[in-house]
Design a protein around this nucleic acid. Structure first.
Lengths: 142, 142
DNA sequence: CTGTCTATGTATAATAC
DNA sequence: TGTATTATACATAGACA
């Protein structure tokens, strides 16, 4: 977005890093504001400079209210996870991707694989959904 | 940034609004991530869709830790405001803004003002820097 | 609703002051 | 140290699948 392409790693030169920080920070805040206006959604953004200075943007009245909403959201999320964690193998969300891959592979290669029953399949579906969500999140970030 | 320029107001067509939300949200998260990597700073971003879904980005391990840092920052700020509301010359940062103003005024009006030596000037500079930082913080938060 | 394409509008890295 | 300019890279609106 400038004269040349930047590698995605920490800018080593202190001076350029500072300049880039200043420019990109305002750009980011501008875009956060645009998103909240155009799409009529709540947005909160916090940036701490390396020297501890705080820059923030918030679509509504106060960042505090957004943060409260975040806390509520986390609690609700936790409750719903607890609710269906009854069938889950681990607290934080099903099997590892490697495990899932093996499971799916067995299922595909051996259609009569006898350890599978409806309960297993329901759990498998849930794990795949989680894995899918995680993968999508990573994609957005790359 | 597309075929035509968008007005900065809520997009009325529900479908376009949703599409724009999806695209700009990923763009914003990507840029938040780039800022945190390139400039080696802490960034937290929260977006609530109109249907209450949460999308978030956080540069470190957990949003919680960033939010804690935010809370601390607010407390420190409150303390420093309280401090200079008293017109303090106290521990945490030099002279009151009123005192500084007088000092600078004397310096400007009387170039030969005799009480100034290098040590005083160094201290003055330090005080001005602190005052500047406090003013900037207030500006950012307003 | 998700992905793709592409013309255009924006953001910004480097540079000049 | 900013501030302004410019050349590029990037984001995305609209259209379509």
């Amino acid at each position: 977005m400038g004269r040349r392409k930047l590698e995605m790693k920490r800018i080593e030169d202190k001076s350029s890093r500072q300049v880039t920080f200043s420019k990109r920070r305002s750009g980011l805040i501008k875009k956060a504001r645009e998103l909240s206006i155009l799409c009529d959604v709540e947005v909160a953004l916090l940036v701490f400079s390396s020297h501890g200075r705080l820059f923030e943007f918030c679509s509504g009245n106060s960042l505090t209210s957004v943060l409260e909403r975040y806390q509520n959201h986390r609690e609700e999320e936790k409750e719903s996870k607890d609710a269906d964690a009854q069938g889950s193998t681990s607290e934080n969300g099903g099997k590892s991707h490697a495990e899932l891959l093996q499971l799916v592979q067995r299922l595909v290669e051996e259609p009569d694989y006898e350890d599978f029953n409806v309960t297993d399949l329901v759990e498998l579906e849930k794990d795949l959904t989680i894995a899918l969500t995680q993968t999508r999140n990573r994609k957005v970030l790359s």
